[in-house]
């Protein structure tokens, strides 16, 4: 069922919570939009999503109302009716809000959400803000992702263990190594575990390191603004811009025209998952 064109799907995933997934998802989306791409940020932290909080947005529509509409009448379903727009100055990107009610989040249907995300093909980039578990939903999303941005703050032993276990599990689940991008957040903060020790343990190098800047991060959250607007000079802002550039091949392309869009592959490992997890 290969479509003519599909979006680049970047999932932001971690196996330790609270380490900057949402901050990364927002600033990556903003960076991609700044480069001129059509971007949709999907908040898939269904129970306690923070995207609307961190961007000071509110919405009547959500992925839950989208799910219901799709269930009632799949033919007339238009995903754009359920998106809201984040706008600041000349920057704009779309946001798919998480369910408003916890009950809806608890009842979420993986196949239907997958279907909804797959209908976002008219965007150049779809950024998925996930939560920190190997849930059926997250695995389905990692399956359809072009890139898995696997992020961690490796400040203490349990976090290191969970980063390593998370990575090993992704490999065991047969995600291509090239698809997994290891990102270390708050990389330069005072900590007891050195980045290169982490790399030695994982057997992989970090694709990108984001520096620590708590005041900037908090300011951005409190003002509901991506870092480029509220902390333009922060090293964290610059680092997010670099990360964005890595995902758009900014250096290789002279203009911001997107060429040769990759298709989001559906890995054969779904079968392995079906075997391992039975009930997918």
């Amino acid at each position: 069922m290969a479509e003519e064109r599909s979006s680049i799907i970047i999932s932001i995933f971690s196996t330790t919570p609270g380490i900057g997934k949402t901050v990364t998802a927002i600033n990556l989306s903003a960076g991609l939009a700044k480069e001129g791409y059509k971007v949709c940020l999907v908040d898939l932290d269904l129970q306690f999503g923070d995207v609307l909080n961190y961007l000071k947005l509110s919405s009547k529509q959500s992925i839950a109302t989208a799910q219901r509409a799709m269930q009632i009448d799949a033919d007339s379903f238009e995903v754009k009716d359920f998106l809201i727009t984040y706008e600041h100055e000349d920057l704009t990107f779309a946001v798919m809000p998480p369910p408003f009610y916890l009950y809806d989040a608890y009842q979420a249907n993986v196949a239907r959400i997958e279907n909804i995300v797959k209908q976002l093909t008219y965007f150049d980039f779809v950024v998925l803000d996930l939560n920190s578990a190997f849930s059926a939903l997250n695995l389905a999303m990692l399956d359809i992702s072009t890139i898995i941005n696997f992020i961690g703050v490796i400040d203490f032993l349990p976090a290191l263990k969970n980063f390593k276990i998370g990575y090993d599990t992704l490999i065991r689940f047969n995600y291509e190594e090239s698809k997994i991008r290891l990102v270390e957040n708050r990389a330069d903060s005072q900590k007891l575990i050195e980045s290169h020790d982490v790399e030695r343990l994982i057997g992989e190098t970090f694709y990108h390191r984001l520096p620590n800047d708590f005041p900037a991060a908090i300011k951005s959250i409190n003002q509901g603004l991506p870092l480029m607007f509220c902390a333009p000079d922060s090293k964290l802002t610059k680092s997010f811009w670099e990360l964005t550039g890595k995902y758009t091949n900014r250096k290789l392309q002279t203009d911001t025209q997107l060429q040769g869009v990759q298709t989001a592959g559906i890995g054969f490992f779904s079968r392995i998952l079906a075997f391992l997890f039975g009930k997918r």
Binding site: P17, G18, N53, S135, N222
Partner: peptide
């Protein structure tokens, strides 16, 4: 585990006491 899922719900139902924790960070 964090959040509402079959394990956390079943274990909470079985408990006589539930400590619900949150760590102060950005206010949300």
């Amino acid at each position: 585990p964090a959040g509402f899922n079959p394990v956390s719900v079943a274990m909470s139902q079985l408990s006589d006491t539930v400590v619900i924790m949150a760590m102060i960070n950005n206010g949300f």
